[in-house]
Amino acid sequence: MSAVLAVDGLRKSFGGVHAVQGVQFALGAGEMLALIGPNGAGKSTCFNMLNGQIRPDGGTVMLDGRDITGMKPRDVWRLGVGRTFQITATFASFTVAENVQLALSSYHRRLTTLWRRASSLDRDEALALLRQVGMADQADRQTGILAYGDLKRVELAIALANRPRLLLMDEPTAGMAPQERVGLMALTARLAREQGIAVLFTEHDMDVVFGHADRVMVLERGRKIAEGTPEAVRSDERVQAIYLGSGAMYGEGH
């Protein structure tokens, strides 16, 4: 298995605070890797460096063997990195289909087209993506008035528009009900397997992490302190001490 994403020696400081110091990991096609750790451990910084929102101080990020370190978010995206945000980010004044159409038109470099109506451009392809996430029946509703769980699905469809090799999901299930969480992650895992997409996600819900990740990586104070199968990480005493606690807040703990 050749790595879709290979990260080595990734570093970033903000005003003397070492947010991320020397993180290294790799991720293969179809694999789901969870990134966990206490608030402020450097997860978001790490994430933002992978898609170019933050420029690293050092280290390399390789996508399919190509160095993408320090590239702009939109260039990284064009090379096949999709992203969903912790707080849902969609274009609220458009319909669901138009949201996906915008991403598709951008991918096909047709945003400067001046002689066609945008609402008819790339519509069939958008509907196909919406069918994949189970949102085709709501294609013509306004995005701004959708229920939260549905928005998350729309976001997923948008993130699939550039036929990503790598999908970065920042707390994908935050704010969702338990059943919706399971549904969304099962859908993500299926799409990842079918299309060979590597998925990296951060998450605070341990039921989601231990239920859906193939591998788990733990950050603390900018360093990787553990990596392995969910079972191994779950029984790691150090991880329990700094992050997981007694286990009363997830799983069969109550």
Binding site: P73, R74, L102
Partner: peptide, 11 residues
Amino acid sequence: DNPLRAEAVGM
């Protein structure tokens, strides 16, 4: 509507 998202889809 959402500059962050717009950048993230290549605009």
